[in-house]
Structure formats: structure tokens, C-alpha cells
């Protein structure tokens, strides 16, 4: 029982780490990828998006505040304009480790969304652009059709993302 709990904690921790990287990736992509900038700008200047995992997190909040892009880890209950909540950590892990695309996750009912579904497509494109920078092509071609072109090479993206 304890082993199972520890295993779940580890998985939540791992999802949390990838979420942090994803948040940094979004911020860096906003700087270097016009497509990501355009999508984030289209959401509006004060639109916040939370990605979380039920029932306790981890959670990532990103968006724009006072005209500036931001991303940060947040509490499970932090309010946001759009909340994408994974029903469990296993589904989140599949998504955050590049083993399941957003379309497939949606098809498999892995998450719920609260908020304007019209804006969600922009968010899925942002995630696709950033994931295509973060993951190697042999992974992205399994989860995206088509795979978006990279704006910068992978090494530069990781360095930029880590030091942003």
C-alpha cells in the first residue's frame, strides 16, 4: 500500500517537473516562435490558463498578466479563466511524457475543461508547438498529425528554456 502511494507521489512529482519545463517552454517559445506569440496574444491580455491533475495537483498556471507572459506552479484550487484538469495522474503522465497527444487525450476523456472551449483550440496549438520543440521527432510524429515545424533547434530551445 505504502509502495503504491509512493509510486503515485513519484508520478505526480514527475508530472510537476515536466509542467514546470512546459511553462518555461511556453515562455521561451513566446519569445522565439511567432506562431506561439500570436496564439497567446489571441487569448487576450489577462487570460489565465491552468493545467492541473485531480484531485490535488500538481498545477501549472500560465498566460499573460499586465501584457507580459508568465508561467508558474500554483495550488490545485488557484482560479483561472480556463482550467484543463486531468482526471488522474496516469493520463497526465502519458501526456506529459510524450506518449499521448492532446487529440488522443481528448478522445480518451482523460481531462475536463472549464471555460471557453473556443479558446481551447489555441491552447492545444500552443502545446503542440512547444511539445514539438521539447520532444524529438520520433516521439512527436506518434502523437501529432502533422508535426509542426521547429522554430529553433532542440539544443537552443532547451538552453533558452532553462535559462529564461
Amino acid at each position: 500500500m505504502e509502495k503504491k502511494k509512493a509510486n503515485k507521489r513519484f508520478k505526480r512529482g514527475l508530472v510537476g517537473v515536466v509542467m514546470t519545463l512546459l511553462g518555461k517552454g511556453i515562455r521561451y517559445a513566446y519569445k522565439v516562435d511567432e506562431r506561439v506569440k500570436a496564439e497567446i496574444d489571441s487569448l487576450g491580455d489577462n487570460c489565465t490558463i491552468k493545467i492541473t491533475v485531480a484531485p490535488v495537483g500538481p498545477s501549472l498556471l500560465f498566460g499573460k498578466a499586465d501584457g507580459k507572459i508568465f508561467s508558474k506552479r500554483c495550488d490545485y484550487d488557484t482560479p483561472a479563466d480556463i482550467v484543463m484538469s486531468f482526471k488522474g495522474v496516469e493520463g497526465a503522465l502519458l501526456m506529459f511524457t510524450g506518449r499521448m497527444g492532446l487529440g488522443e487525450g481528448y478522445a480518451q476523456h482523460r481531462f475536463t475543461i472549464k471555460g471557453d472551449l473556443y479558446k481551447v483550440m489555441a491552447i492545444t496549438r500552443i502545446m503542440s508547438y512547444v511539445e514539438s520543440e521539447m520532444f524529438p521527432k520520433f516521439i512527436t510524429k506518434k502523437i501529432m498529425n502533422p508535426v509542426p515545424k521547429r522554430a529553433v533547434n532542440m539544443l537552443r530551445f532547451y538552453l533558452g528554456m532553462l535559462f529564461i
Binding site: G103, A107, K119, V120, M121, T124, S128, M144
Partner: peptide, 13 residues
């Protein structure tokens, strides 16, 4: 159209 949710489950985005 590209912002419509139905785009997400089309086999080609």
C-alpha cells in the same frame, strides 16, 4: 474553423 473544438478529433489537424 481552426478554433472549433471539432478540429481536435479530426485525424488530420
Amino acid at each position: 474553423a481552426i478554433n472549433d473544438g471539432a478540429s481536435l478529433v479530426n485525424p488530420i489537424t
